[in-house]
Design a protein around this nucleic acid. Sequence first.
DNA 1: ATGTCACATTAGATATAATCTAAATTCTTG
DNA 2: CAAGAATTTAGATTATATCTAATGTGACAT
Lengths: 141, 141
Amino acid sequence: MDAEAIKRSLEGSGLRCTPQRYAVIEFLMEHNRHPTAAEIFEAVNRVDPRSSRATTYNNLRDLVQAGLVREVAVEGRAARFDAKGMRHHHFICDRCGNVEDIEWYDVPRPASGSLGQRILRECELIFRGLCTKCATRHASR
Amino acid sequence: MDAEAIKRSLEGSGLRCTPQRYAVIEFLMEHNRHPTAAEIFEAVNRVDPRSSRATTYNNLRDLVQAGLVREVAVEGRAARFDAKGMRHHHFICDRCGNVEDIEWYDVPRPASGSLGQRILRECELIFRGLCTKCATRHASR
DNA sequence: ATGTCACATTAGATATAATCTAAATTCTTG
DNA sequence: CAAGAATTTAGATTATATCTAATGTGACAT
Ligand SMILES: [Mn+2]
Ligand SMILES: [Mn+2]
Ligand SMILES: [Zn+2]
Ligand SMILES: [Zn+2]
C-alpha cells in the first residue's frame, strides 16, 4: 500500500493524515512484528523525532477505533499492534510473548442460541504454545 | 467441587493448600464473573483469612501455571481470571470489557504446515461485540 | 518432640503501561 | 485572514503488576 492509499484510508475514516499519525500506520504496515506502543514510539522517533508518547498512544487508539489497526492484549505484557491487512489468526508464545501471524481459515460461529441478545462483531482465534525459537531452545535442554 | 476436591487438585499440582491460596480458587469456583486480581483480593479479604496483594498475585500466577485457573487479557483493562471447569469460549464486550462464558464447541486446528516448528498447546476462540446489557443500552439511543 | 529447610506470606517500595491535563500548534473552512 | 476544531506536546498522574527482604509455617528427617 503506497502513501496515497494510506492517506485515503485515514481520511476515509475521518482522521486527518498528520505526520505523526502517518508514521504510526506506515511503520505498522512495513513490519509484521506486532510491536508494542513503546517500540512504535521509539521507531517513529528514530527517523524524525517529532512525536510524543501521548500522541503515539492517541493515534494508536484512533487507528484501532477506525478499524485500521488491531490491538492484541498479551497477559502480563504490553499490548501489541498490527495493521489490519489480510485476515489472519495469531499465535502467542507462552514463553516470550511474541505474537506471530497464522494463515487465515474460516471459523465456525457459535449457535445463535448461545449468543442470546449479544451483538457479535468478530470471532478471533488465538493459538498458544511455543514459538519456533522457544520450541528449539526448549528441546535442547 | 467440595473442599476436599480443591485440596486434592492443589496438591496434585504440587501446591500446598494454604488458606490464602484456597480462598482464591474457592472464590473463582463459586463465581463465574471473571474477576480481576484486585476484585479477588478484596473479596477474599472481606471474610476471614487475610491475604496481602502480593500473595493474591503470587497465588493467581501459581494457579495459572498449574493449569487450574485461566487468565484472560483484556485490552486496556486489568486481566481477568476464571477457574478452568468445563471447557468454554469467551465473549468480551467492546464497551464495558466484561468477559462472559460461551458454550463450548470444537475448533478446527490449523494445518500443520502453517504451524511450522511451533508447539501448539491450545486454541482459544474469543468473541467480541456488545454484551446483552450494552447491546440493550446501545439500541435505545 | 525437635530441628531444619523449602515453601509461603507480608507491607511497602518499585517497575511498567497507559491515560490525563492544559497549553500550544496546526489544519480546515468560510 | 479569522475562527473553530482537531491535533500535538511535556509532564504529571493513574492503574496494574512485580519485587524485596523480613517473617512465618509446615512437612519431614532424626
Ligand atoms: Mn498480525
Ligand atoms: Mn470463563
Ligand atoms: Zn517464544
Ligand atoms: Zn458490555
